[in-house]
């Protein structure tokens, strides 16, 4: 079972690590809208490249970590690309020049290009995901959501309390799998594992909630241990992201 390795202190102290997580989410959202407006290859690949480059240079993400994060991706990119390429409505347009006929499928050039465009979109979204995940830790994310994004604090910090139990759940899961193996059951992955996992998780949640209530969780105004402030670095990140979006997505349409 993979237990998450948090971003290193180096990554969290990097320029991108210091940008407000809420702002990073907003930037990701704006870039997504830009991506969804086009099925062309170039804008998506450019955004993917910029996200990878920014992770390496501004996020101090080690190339190996980045590679491991993006490695499983080719399957999803291939699947999405193939689906869109094979089932593009352009393929049935008799006016278009056909590239190949594979079984029942007729492939045309614009259809294939659309498929590659969507595969590039997968790459771009995943690259943005690695950038976000590798420069953000859960605590700062919740601090930012609550203090800068007006997420209700009981829910935000309640979720954070549950998040702290991730290593415990991963351990529970491997204990449950071992228990299955000891009982002589062949497959150690089974949907029933979820029942055991949730039983242990809810027991843990009950104790946690009791402890939190004992400390008066959510019963009064909350003081801030880690105050979040908007800073110049946020302004820089926001402006940079807007310029990138404008150049990558808007410019090809104008020219």
């Amino acid at each position: 079972m993979m237990v998450r390795v948090d971003p290193t202190d180096d990554q969290l102290a990097s320029p991108l690590g210091r940008v407000s997580p809420l702002l990073k989410l907003a930037i990701a959202g704006a870039w997504f809208v830009g991506l969804f407006l086009t099925t062309e290859i170039l804008p998506a690949l450019a955004l993917a490249g910029i996200a990878v480059g920014a992770s390496l240079v501004l996020g101090y993400v080690p190339a190996g970590t980045l590679g491991r994060g993006l490695a499983p991706l080719w399957i999803a990119a291939l699947a999405v690309g193939l689906f869109n390429g094979l089932f593009s409505p352009l393929n049935s347009d008799p006016a278009l020049h056909e590239l190949a006929i594979i079984g029942p499928f007729r492939l045309t050039e614009p259809g294939v290009i659309a498929g590659v465009g969507l595969a590039s979109r997968v790459l771009a979204i995943a690259a943005i995901g690695v950038l976000f995940a590798q420069t953000t830790d859960a605590t700062r994310l919740v601090d930012s959501l609550v203090q800068q994004g007006r997420v209700p604090e009981r829910f935000g910090y309640g979720a954070l309390a549950a998040y702290q139990a991730v290593p415990r759940f991963a351990e529970d899961l491997s204990t449950l799998r071992q228990a299955r193996r000891i009982r002589g059951l062949r497959s150690s992955w089974h949907p029933r594992l979820l029942v055991g996992l949730l039983v242990l998780a809810i027991r843990h949640a009950d104790r946690l909630a009791l402890a939190m209530d004992a400390r008066g969780f959510g019963t009064g105004p909350r003081s801030r241990y880690r105050p979040m402030h908007w800073g110049l670095i946020d302004l820089g990140a926001g402006a940079g992201a807007a310029v990138v979006l404008a150049i990558v997505v808007v410019l090809p349409r104008v020219t």
């Binding site: 998040y163 139990a165 991730v166 899961l173 594992l193 998780a201 949640a205 009950d206 909630a209 009791l210």
Partner: peptide
């Protein structure tokens, strides 16, 4: 209640791990 919040969050987290 606090318990509702934490149990709902833990369900989300456990599914996230799964």
């Amino acid at each position: 209640r606090t318990r509702d919040i934490v149990v709902a969050a833990v369900i989300g987290v456990a599914f996230g791990v799964a």
